[in-house]
């Protein structure tokens, strides 16, 4: 079976700088959830950016549903069905909540469908429905986080790439966020999740992928990764211990 997304020998870096991601390969099947973990600066975010088209890979190719999408513009890749939620919350802080959601539905050509998706998002996140006219940047962190995930449900992509969803969130919000991700996964969307909080990330995922210094260290079913000795070494017991 050919996979939904396959990343083949991708090398990427910024500007004239060195290669950050080296010869990296990974594949993702439909409704599969894979979690990439690795120390800071391993190149996880860089990899996701390369897949999403924000950064053009230097070599290698990315195949999505049999189509070579390497080097396409970010908006084209997004319209094909790969949605990227970057590390920094990518909402539009000066637009209202309603406008933010309209932007989420921007690429949906069928406006009725877009309306109904937005309606559905309100049902799922009633807080947003109450705050349509509020400027998004003035909402609390948790509410903004809901806005980010409302996007995923509005767009209904085939794959969603999530970069460090729990970064800088209070524990209760982390819980909430992972519930959203589980919801996304159970609606049949394939997910690549990058997460520092290895335990939480791996518990949510089917597979665990460990990345170090821009290379694939190893890939295993998530529960096996949790037991893996090498992971402990990599993290020096930091996140894994308890």
């Amino acid at each position: 079976m050919t996979s939904l997304l396959s990343i083949r020998n991708v090398t990427a870096g910024y500007g004239y700088g060195p290669d950050i991601v080296h010869d990296f390969s990974l594949s993702l099947n439909e409704s599969e959830v894979k979690c990439i973990i690795g120390p800071n600066g391993a190149g996880k975010s860089t990899l996701l950016k390369a897949v999403a088209g924000i950064l053009k890979p230097r070599s290698g190719e990315i195949i999505f549903e049999g189509e070579n999408i390497t080097g396409k513009e970010a908006y084209q890749i997004m319209r094909l069905g790969i949605c990227f939620l970057p590390q920094e919350r990518a909402i539009f802080p000066n637009l209202t909540v309603a406008e933010n959601l309209r932007m989420c539905a921007y690429s949906i050509k069928d406006k009725e469908l877009a309306e109904s998706r937005i309606e559905a998002a309100f049902e799922m996140f009633p807080v947003l429905g109450e705050r349509l006219k509020q400027i998004a940047g003035t909402m609390s962190g948790g509410q903004q986080q809901q806005l980010v995930y409302a996007r995923a449900f509005t767009i209904k992509p085939k794959i969603i790439l999530i970069d460090e969803p729990s970064l800088g969130l209070a524990p209760a919000l982390v819980e909430q966020t992972f519930n959203h991700i589980k919801q996304i996964a159970s609606s049949g969307i394939a997910v690549i999740l990058v997460e520092q909080n290895a335990i939480k990330g791996l518990q949510t995922s089917g597979y665990g992928v460990v990345m170090d210094l821009g290379r694939l260290a190893f890939e295993k079913p998530a529960n096996e990764v949790l037991q893996d000795q090498r992971l402990r070494e990599l993290y020096l017991g930091k996140a894994i211990k308890k």
């Binding site: 999403a52 513009e73 997004m78 949605c83 990518a90 539009f92 000066n94 637009l95 921007y106």
Partner: peptide, 22 residues
């Protein structure tokens, strides 16, 4: 719709691309 896209782009170009704005 396009007007909102213009405002969104002026706030954050990358985010706009990520929701499918050319």
């Amino acid at each position: 719709e396009f007007g909102i896209a213009i405002r969104a782009t002026s706030q954050n170009r990358t985010s706009a691309e990520l929701v499918g704005v050319n």
